[in-house]
């Protein structure tokens, strides 16, 4: 690592800067986390949170399929999964995300696709509040 004598610079950038960036990227390689999502504590929300549900996909995109990256794609798209018949239960999502196991009754690939969809929910989309509450409990 660090041998760059045969490489040309891009845009005239000094070699040292690129070496530093390479080294920085290697920091925390092999299994160490580089990003942690803040999961704020809120006392005693357990009861209400665990009964919440997350429709996949949200009603605005009902009928869409979920690809392996959690994106909503047109129904029938190759390699994408049909949506679950019922909304995902908050407790099931929480457990799957915490333990790395599958959602109940689903194989690994399908479960992972749905969980990726959930992980990418944004404010304003149905199910986001449930997901955000789960984040608070995962620790």
């Amino acid at each position: 690592m660090g041998e760059m004598s045969d490489e040309t610079d891009h845009d005239g950038e000094p070699r040292e800067a690129r070496t530093t960036r390479r080294r920085a990227l290697m920091l925390g390689a092999a299994g160490a986390a580089a990003v942690v999502s803040i999961r704020p504590a809120l006392a005693q929300t357990a009861g209400s949170v665990l009964t919440c549900e997350i429709p996949v996909p949200d009603p605005g995109r009902a009928g869409g399929y979920i690809d392996a990256n959690g994106n909503v794609v047109p129904a029938g798209t190759k390699n994408a999964f049909a949506p679950p018949l019922r909304p995902l239960k908050g407790e099931d999502v929480r457990r799957a995300m915490a333990t790395g196991g599958n959602l109940p009754g689903m194989d690994y690939e399908r479960s992972r696709a749905y969980l990726k969809y959930v992980g990418r929910l944004q404010r304003g989309t149905t199910g986001f509040t449930c997901f955000a509450s789960l984040q608070m409990l995962r620790k």
């Binding site: 942690v36 803040i38 704020p40 504590a41 809120l42």
Partner: peptide, 12 residues
């Protein structure tokens, strides 16, 4: 910062 997010009831 992280410890205070745990100590706040309305940060989110």
């Amino acid at each position: 910062f992280v410890r205070l997010t745990q100590a706040s009831t309305n940060y989110v």
